[in-house]
Write a protein that binds this DNA or RNA. Structure first.
Lengths: 339, 339
DNA sequence: GAAAAATATGTCGACGTTGTCATGCGTCTG
DNA sequence: CAGACGCATGACAACGTCGACATATTTTTC
């Protein structure tokens, strides 16, 4: 193992001087600095993080604890955002998934503690309210895509589902749609309620009556084993005499079934029925024909901002532990037409 | 910080005895062991990995270096497999993404070295042949979902695209299909060639002529910015007088467009045209109606086995650095009918 | 019942790094 | 020119853990 000591020997200086060079401390002659740097290059020296950590009790490592995020296709962009931030700021990321099991969660907190993690990003796959088993370990924590249930608040960052659904609804209304169908997300998800509320409120404000709305449940049951009514619901909705001219889908994935249901009934998209999604899950939204108009969940930014926020918490700046919210931008594609 | 020393003080023994208890070494009375364990619990002691590593020069940590895997929806199951193995075997996972940039890659290898990583899993999003910039760091490495180009071989684990496509083709042939269309994956991907070869070979063996086959390119161009011809290709294919009774899609995602193309032409699936995918990317294969018959990429097992294999390499057992291959199981759903 | 073996516990140092303090040298101030 | 100051460097200890070795106690063996 090539250590600071071997570098010092080769450069003909003390180890402390090498340490100074490595850490960019002042009070080193240009000449010694160069000698040391050459020795570092020649020997291929790399600092030993474990030793640093033991000395400084700072690991420069953040932990991600997730339910399924990194192992599920949907919210990977959160992780990407975090990693990009970490990369740009010289931090390392240690990742663990609970798979939803709370005994796992406790084990993971212990593991984080063991590794002297500086801070934890608590990430969930679906936007929801939870009660993190922080294991009372006292590591600074920021929640991403979820919000703590209990009063002992942790700072959190969430997508603005309400605003996203409101913008989407307005978009349809502005294009002349007055009969609108809505196929609901699984009600366990926080987004489901927020999106539906926004839909109801916005159509109401615009003067639509309850009879102009056609609302159906698309999915229900435990995440990962839900019952799927989307195709049936869409088919039924589109067979009504007075069928909606536009359908809002709880998310993009569900929109696949709505497309297929519409086409099976011989309806053209968007001429006969307009469809909008939610999430901008691009594997779907860009694969559908016509491409899907939808509201983009700000996953990447959630990750980036979350890491940034955690960093300031760790650095000790007094972040008030409130919930920060990021907007969902409307992505206009070709699945909606004006009437 | 509660260390071994504080535990020793409380338990009234030497630190070495505490160390012995922690590591389950023999030669400790039942009585002392209990006293120590109680002290550990009372103080909430957790071993300090950094210190351990510095002492033993083993970190019990594996690194994942990926192009985009963990930040892309497709192959997250590889990561899940690795993490499950790590969890079950008390290893920790450090994860980094190159985003495809090779200067990133070098940086990441340095970082791994800095952290004293025991072994590295080199994972790619798409099955392909690459030349890893291992940074000549000499950390044991196993490649997952890819194969090294150069002669200095590293052990690798890959999916058996050929077998998967062969089984899928046979499945169609056995059900009486004699006119079969094929929409090709992006040819940069190793899977594209293997799958197409299998399709050609298997139909040929079965006695189909080239004229019975209708092969079109679905996508091309750099990953992430490819040109997409799928919808057009499928539409054109299905408008032929002598249209195929079944279409094999390069992957599940492309099948979305094939479904829509077929339906737009008023064709029913599977009565008028059968469709099979590849990958079993469940967000798609289970969302399509009828659900998609496909071959499942063994991603989870790739991860699990890869971690296992890396572990034996690290432990020093002489693993011959050859390529191991895992089969793609056919998943029968409802998108194919017998003629 | 003495020597040998097995069991139980302790002391000490080293891993690689950096913070604290000390030292040496040159330059400035009055 | 004495003292103060700024700069450049080094000596040393300490972080938490565990391996090597030493010591103390008990058990086995003939």
């Amino acid at each position: 193992m090539v250590s600071i000591v071997s570098v010092a020997k080769v450069a003909g200086v003390s180890n402390k001087t090498v340490s100074r060079v490595i850490n960019g401390e002042p009070y080193v002659t240009e000449e010694t600095r160069e000698r040391v740097e050459r020795a570092i290059r020649d020997l291929g020296y790399v600092p030993n993080m474990a030793a640093r950590q033991i000395r400084s009790s700072r690991s420069n490592t953040f932990g991600i604890i997730a339910d399924y995020v990194s192992t599920t296709p949907y919210s990977v962009d959160i992780v990407r955002g975090i990693q990009d931030w970490a990369n740009a700021n010289g931090k390392t990321i240690l990742m663990a998934n609970t798979g939803g099991a709370s005994e796992q969660e406790i084990k993971i907190w212990k593991m984080f503690q063991s590794h002297g993690i500086d801070g934890v990003l608590y990430v969930t796959m679906y936007h929801r309210i939870i009660d993190p088993e922080t294991g009372d370990v006292g590591i600074p924590t920021v929640m991403i895509n979820c919000r703590p249930k209990t009063s002992e608040l942790l700072p959190s960052i969430e997508p603005d589902d309400y605003q996203g659904a409101r913008d989407l609804t307005r978009y349809l209304l502005e294009r002349g749609h007055r009969k609108i169908g809505y196929i609901r997300l699984n009600p366990i998800l926080l987004g489901a309620e927020l999106r539906l509320d926004a839909f109801r409120k916005t159509t109401g404000d615009f003067g639509l009556a309850a009879s102009d709305l056609s609302i159906r449940l698309g999915m229900e049951g435990p995440v990962g084993a839900e019952k799927n009514y989307v195709f049936a619901a869409a088919t039924e909705m589109l067979q009504q005499r007075d069928r909606p001219t536009a359908i809002m889908s709880g998310n993009d994935e569900m929109a696949i079934q709505i497309y297929i249901a519409a086409m099976a009934l011989g309806l053209r998209i968007p001429e006969d029925v307009s469809i909008v999604g939610f999430d901008d899950f691009r594997t779907v939204s860009l694969a559908l024909r016509p491409e899907l108009t939808t509201a983009a969940l700000p996953y990447y930014d959630l990750g980036l901002q979350g890491a940034e926020l955690l960093n300031s918490v760790v650095a000790g700046s007094d972040v008030c532990p409130s919930s920060r919210v990021m907007s969902c931008n409307l992505v206009e594609r070709l699945s909606v037409c004006s009437l």
